[in-house]
């Protein structure tokens, strides 16, 4: 592989994941939190793809490199499908809350505590 090294992709993935995780912790709007979660999932996707493209591991003697190559790409399709299902459910829940309260700030959702 010429050009961009594996480390560049992995660093981008790690930074995206960190931004996403930080966003979940500090943001208060559920939709933004949800966007941050999507960012985390996509960081994982990018990591999968980068590893799939540069598929030399010490186990390459045991595992067929083509299998390694396919696994990473397949994983991304799976994750995209899962993320789409999560969007459908998540936005449904947020809509239900907005309809009955007219606001969705997570700090104001504090009926349950103790």
């Amino acid at each position: 592989m010429e050009g961009i090294p594996l480390a560049a992709y992995l660093s981008l993935g790690a930074v995206m994941f960190a931004i996403g995780a930080l966003g979940v912790v500090i943001r208060r709007n559920p939709i933004v939190i949800f966007m941050c979660i999507e960012l985390m999932l996509n960081a994982a996707n990018l990591t999968f793809l980068a590893f799939a493209r540069y598929h030399e591991t010490p186990l390459s003697r045991i595992i067929d490199p083509n299998d390694t190559y396919m696994t990473g790409q397949m994983a991304v399709i799976f994750v995209m499908a899962v993320a789409a299902a999560e969007v459908a459910i998540g936005l449904g829940i947020i809509m239900a809350i907005f309809r009955s309260r007219e606001e969705i700030d997570v700090d104001k959702l504090n009926l349950l505590r103790g």
């Binding site: 559920p30 994982a44 590893f51 598929h55 186990l59 390694t68 994750v79 459910i89 998540g90 809350i97």
Partner: peptide
């Protein structure tokens, strides 16, 4: 909402972990 946000957050962690294990082992 709480279950959804924290559950999805946790699955993000798990997935990234799986990606790293995959990167190290190739499977």
């Amino acid at each position: 909402l709480k279950y959804f946000l924290l559950g999805a957050f946790a699955s993000g962690f798990m997935l990234y972990g799986i990606a790293l294990i995959y990167g190290a082992t190739g499977t």
